[in-house]
Design a protein around this nucleic acid. Structure first.
Length: 594
RNA sequence: GGUCUCAUAGCUCAACCGGACAGAGCAACUGCCUUCUAAGCAGUAGGUUGUGGGUUCGAGUCCCGCUGGGAUCACCA
């Protein structure tokens, strides 16, 4: 039993014996004691005052007395108004530490539940940019966190590889591509295709302006521009399976996939299953028929199909166009069924920006009305947009921060700083470059993941490459620092593996560190329940901080007393391992040296 | 206009069912490397939590109003 539940148990008994009050231990909430007070755990007695008809301080005093007398883990208490602060005996801290050292500490047993996490879901026209990075980092981390919480997780990626937008790139390539390839131009495939998408928009804009100059009104000009007609033609050909169109489509998509793969590998995210929209976009039509038959949907005179969600405080939503072609909703209905066939899950998480809150609400309500067995487990992990200090990223204004560029820049910074600090003595070139990449990704991922996913965030390129303070590299540094100590300990013949620990008097920083270490499972569970990597990012920071405080106050290898020295080496090992595990759940690597 | 959402130190972020004097980092200023990695540690300064009410032992947190951002409400994807 861990310390928290032990104390809850004791308090529950105290309430029973002193006040004849029955409260379940788990309902007696403890909070960490504020630093300015003595103690580690605080129990608030205000809520009990009315019930027990006694002053909060008196209740705290009574409970404190009882717990101190009956629980040997509690070594003291003090009362401030209605706050009961409990101090913990060193022997109890050592017991706690023994649990922390166990190999399965913080590893939740399989819970038999399946969860699908869909994330990334790019569009094959656009190389990955900063906004996508938040999606990728979040999705990956949430999936890993859920695994650690005992779920069986399937990571999926739905690639939006068809439609008008793709035809735009294809058309521009046909007209202006001159047979270029990623190889011939030395450009990553996704960037090459993205360039043609931009090219299309430029040419199209020019045509529209030319028409406007002839006095043709805006809307007409936009529709009548020859390029737009050509795109519609091409889309039609694609849908009819025209071999030439399909061949070009496959060629260009192939380049994009290769480019995405390279980026995914670089940022360290992966998927168990990839869905291509070209394979699934027709699936929804049978769902439409089913919905019509069951009266969930209705058809308007023009042939379009709708669902009435006004009772859900939404609106009437179109689910199929009057010409019988799919809208987004149509596809997602079909895909939802397909996902469940492939992986019968209890939960299905869609990692998508909060601009689509309304859409997902409508989608989920629709699936509810269709009484899908998985409908209750659907969850939209809605995250806030990433702003630049100058405001929102706008592709039209060229203010989009490209992921590949950003990472390259951060690697350069990492290299500069590492060299300045003279930290690469004894590194081979390859090792040094691995380190720069590890640090760059650590800085970037931590910078993005430490913010509550639900909140909109500002990405300041200057601050994201800071390596000091509350940053990824600070935590990585702590890991490297501990690794150095462990290497030295090994040379000295000190065995860091868990062994019997003598009864010791602990230093305050040791107690604090054990306390933080012991919190790992709780924090992991919270992060899982809230789908929030930021909780773990914060935890990693607290842990690194606690270790560094200890490091500065007491000597580890220089400790003359052998049992103490041995204990501190073990404490160091447990700290390094827990930092490593926490960072791993965030998708961040822990270097041995830096 | 309807709906949703956000507003905390100069900047970027915290604050677990409502709990103690609202915490970190950056930036500014002070100290600490002949001892395990100073990408570190310790400290100073910085706040009427946008604003006005309400609920209660207690409100950054819950409710209502106001102000100011953002998103969304397509037979676009």
């Amino acid at each position: 039993m861990n310390l928290t539940s032990l104390i809850q148990q004791a308090l529950s008994e105290a309430l029973h014996s002193q006040y004849n009050l029955e409260i379940q231990p788990a309902e007696l909430l403890l909070q960490p004691t504020k630093k300015e007070f003595e103690g580690f755990y605080t129990f608030v007695t205000f809520p009990l005052a009315k019930n027990l008809k006694q002053a909060p301080a008196a209740i705290a005093e009574t409970l404190g007395r009882y717990v101190l007398d009956h629980t040997h883990e509690v070594s003291g208490y003090n009362v401030v108004q209605g706050f009961l602060n409990l101090s913990i005996a060193d022997s109890a801290w050592l017991d706690t530490f023994r649990v922390v050292q166990l190999p399965d500490f913080g590893q939740f047993a399989p819970n038999g539940q399946k969860v699908m996490v869909e994330y990334s879901s790019p569009n094959t026209n656009k190389p990955i940019h900063l906004g996508h990075l938040r999606n990728n980092f979040l999705g990956y981390s949430v999936a890993e966190i859920l695994k650690a919480n005992g779920y069986t997780v399937l990571k999926t990626n739905v690639i939006n590889n068809r439609g008008v937008h793709i035809c735009k790139s294809m058309l521009a390539y046909q007209r202006f591509g001159q047979g270029q390839t990623p190889e011939s131009t030395g450009t990553k495939g996704d960037h090459l295709v993205g360039d043609f998408y931009v090219k299309f928009n430029d040419e199209y804009k020019a045509q529209v302006e030319a028409l406007q100059a002839q006095g043709i009104p805006d809307e007409v000009a936009q529709k009548e521009a020859p390029l737009m007609n050509d795109v519609q033609q091409m889309l039609l050909k694609w849908e009819q399976g025209d071999p030439q169109t399909r061949a070009l489509w496959e060629l260009m998509n192939g380049w994009v996939y290769a480019g995405f793969d390279a980026t995914y590998r670089k940022i360290g995210v992966d998927f168990d299953k990839i869905y291509y929209e070209s394979d699934t976009y027709l699936l929804g039509k049978t769902v439409i028929d089913e919905g019509l038959q069951r009266g969930v949907f209705y058809r308007r005179p023009d042939g379009s199909v709708w669902i009435d969600l006004t009772a859900e405080v939404l609106d009437e939503k179109l689910v199929l166009r009057s010409d019988g072609t799919s809208v987004y909703m149509t596809q997602d209905l079909g895909l939802a069924d397909r996902k469940y066939e492939d992986f019968p899950m209890q939960k299905s998480i869609y990692v998508v920006g909060n601009e689509q809150d309304y859409y997902f609400e409508a989608l989920f309500h629709t699936l509810q009305k269709l009484t899908r067995p998985y409908a209750d487990g659907l969850f939209h992990l809605s995250y806030g947009m990433v702003d630049l200090p100058s405001g929102r990223m706008k592709s039209r204004e060229g203010t989009v921060v490209d992921a590949d560029d950003l990472i390259a820049e951060m690697e350069e910074t990492a290299e500069t700083m590492t060299r300045e600090l003279g930290k690469i003595d004894g590194f081979s070139d390859a090792e040094a470059h691995t380190l720069y990449h590890t640090l760059a990704m650590g800085a970037l991922k931590y910078f993005i993941l430490r913010v509550d996913p639900k909140k909109r965030m500002t990405f300041n390129p200057q601050e994201s490459i800071e390596f000091q303070g509350n940053t990824g590299p600070f935590i990585q540094y702590t890991h490297a620092r501990i690794s150095a100590i462990l290497r030295k300990a090994q040379q000295m013949g000190l065995d860091p593996t868990p062994a019997s620990i003598a009864e010791l008097t602990l230093h305050p920083t040791e107690r604090e560190l054990i306390f933080v270490l012991s919190q790992f499972p709780t924090r992991l569970a919270e992060a899982g329940a809230n789908y929030s990597p930021s909780l773990l990012a914060q935890y990693a920071y607290e842990l690194a901080k606690a270790y560094n405080q200890l490091y500065n106050e007491i000597s580890i290898l220089g400790e003359p007393d052998a049992p103490k020295r041995h204990f501190r080496v073990q404490l160091s090992l447990a700290s390094a391992q827990t930092i490593h595990r926490t960072l791993k759940l965030l998708g961040i690597e822990s270097p041995e040296r830096m």
